[in-house]
Design a protein around this nucleic acid. Structure first.
Lengths: 338, 338
DNA sequence: CTGAAAGCGCTTACAG
DNA sequence: CTGAAAGCGCTTACAG
């Protein structure tokens, strides 16, 4: 490795001068500067970020902790984060936790050892202790996808509302018996979406029917459950899935059970993933601004890193119903009203 | 931040002893060790990775450079890399380059400044100079998805073969007029797959028809091109798409143009992405072992970092035809022969 | 087994 | 404007 000393020697100056010529913060004679820059170029000198970080106490790196980059919402989110980070000269360290609280803790520790300047955390939300600890440590952080009280910065959507938008549309188009595909409701994300489902139903005077609610753990397909439910002959006219991948599985199950979408059963999802317009039928869903959420989280984090002391802010981003072809209008009446 | 000195003071020893007690490489009196460990725990001491890295010349970080984490092959790949990295105690720095040669260079520079212990590079393959430079610098590296000669370690699939497997299956099931959806053939990845297409055709005595070849830039949908081709009334009995996302777009276009899959037109892809079994019809495709490729690349990189001096090795991983329902057998004859 | 010292490669107050 | 020196937080030969 070529160091600042090598450059200094080649340019015939001290390393202090090299450092100053490079940083530009302190005036250096034009001539010397030129000599230094020439030497830098000739030797292809790269300042050692470790040494710089050790001295200055900042590293220009930020950590992004996600449950699983293979969950299709996270690539876009992390792209938003990375693009924004790069724009500001920061570098991204990525960790997957599989929502395992221990891995989450381990990641946070590792990032702290690495002296990241801040952390963006898309946590599972099963346990908060380590997040509060992190917050208390004073390291800049912002939560993503989920929030934690009002004391920690966060970029989120209103999950209840997103689900409400989807189910409300189903209700408005005349659906009454709506299957809900829900995840592990101990996770706030899922319980909130379930609440949105219930609210839309209740507003329409429909009592949620527990036999229509399917709860599937994250790592399990909902295909079987839906297939069986329909084969059993349950009365249903729609499926609300809490995510697009779930909606996709549901569509397959519905079709394999011999029903048509949307003529027999309508389907809606949440996410608006890339592939949804191409499904058969194109999926009606509620979009989350995933890339923008990543951007917003990174912008906020970086502003905190740079000294912004404004109070914690929960940035609730807008979701939007995307109407495609997977929902059929079941009452001509209702159409008039819409 | 609590430093080694704080621990030393609390334990009543020198920082050298703290360091030794923690590393375990040099014997320390049991009693003192206990005191040190107690102090570490009490103060919640985290060694500063920057200082350690600066002193030791290794950082325990590796860089992963991908074109775009939103391209659905990369989440799995990067997951394989990250899991393996973590298993060995390494941390992952992620960069997206959008196949922009300048961003690629910039990323490499940044990673070097950061003193990563090695780099895994899923490069675009448009330009090699910086890769050769990187190789020459002696920093451990392995190429992923694409290779570069035989002088640089790489983990790849045989793209030509993968395409051949897909198209050969089409040919064997009696297809003659096969539309090829191909990307920018200046990229080796795509030109190789195109070669596989041609080879399968030629082996069957079919002359590739240029009017059936659709070339679409990476950032553009192939929907319109296919839709128009079919609407124009082109004679075709199958579509070979060089990736599953392309196959998905193709399916939509074929259906929207009024033809049925697979009765009128069969479709095959490459990738075997998560969503493909759920499509309508479930997509026949060629699987790439994406996660395992990430794993293999990381394992190889780490072994190089740890001093493995074996000559460069091109690890060509197996692809496999996954038969589902998007291809119809067009000749009863052929069935007998299979 | 343990401590004092040197040094990893930078940056920046301190003198000049 | 410039250089010598101190120091960021570690690790490890060097003495003892």
């Amino acid at each position: 490795m070529v160091t600042i000393k090598d450059v200094a020697k080649k340019a015939g100056v001290s390393s202090s001068t090299v450092s100053r010529a490079l940083s530009g913060k302190i005036p250096v004679d034009e001539k010397t500067k030129e000599r230094v820059l020439a030497a830098v170029k000739e030797l292809n000198y790269q300042p050692n970020a470790l040494a710089k970080g050790l001295k200055e106490g900042v590293t220009g790196t930020i950590g992004l902790i996600v449950p699983n980059i293979c969950n299709p919402v996270f690539p876009l989110v992390s792209r938003g984060v990375e693009d924004t980070a790069r724009k500001h000269g920061y570098t991204l360290i990525l960790c997957n936790t599989d929502e395992d609280i221990n891995i989450e803790k381990e990641c946070i520790q590792k990032l702290r050892k690495q002296w990241v300047d801040g952390i963006i955390l898309a946590a599972s939300g099963r346990d908060d202790s380590h997040i509060n600890e992190l917050k208390a440590s004073g390291l800049p952080m912002v939560l993503l996808i989920r929030k934690l009280g009002d004391e920690v910065d966060a970029v989120v959507i209103d999950n209840k509302k997103a689900a409400y938008q989807a189910v409300r549309y189903l209700v408005d188009t005349g659906h009454q018996r709506i299957i809900a595909v829900i995840g592990d409701t101990t996770l706030p994300l899922y319980s909130e979406r379930f609440q949105g489902y219930c609210q839309a139903l209740e507003e329409a005077g429909i009592v949620p029917d527990p036999s229509l609610v399917i709860k599937v753990p994250d790592n399990e397909s909902c295909y079987d459950a839906i297939y069986r439910l329909i084969k059993k002959g349950v009365k249903a006219d729609a499926v609300f899935a809490l995510s697009d991948p779930r909606a996709l599985e549901a569509m397959r199950a519905v079709k394999d059970a011999g029903l048509r979408i949307p003529q027999d059963i309508s389907v809606v999802g949440i996410d608006n993933l890339q592939f949804t317009p191409f499904l058969d039928p194109p999926l009606t869903t509620v979009s989350q601004p995933l890339y923008q959420m990543g951007e917003a989280a990174a912008e906020r984090l970086i502003s905190i890193i740079k000294g912004d002391k404004s109070p914690p802010y929960i940035n609730v981003m807008e979701t939007r119903l995307i109407i495609r072809k997977s929902v059929e209008c079941r009452t001509s009446n209702k159409i008039m009203q819409l």
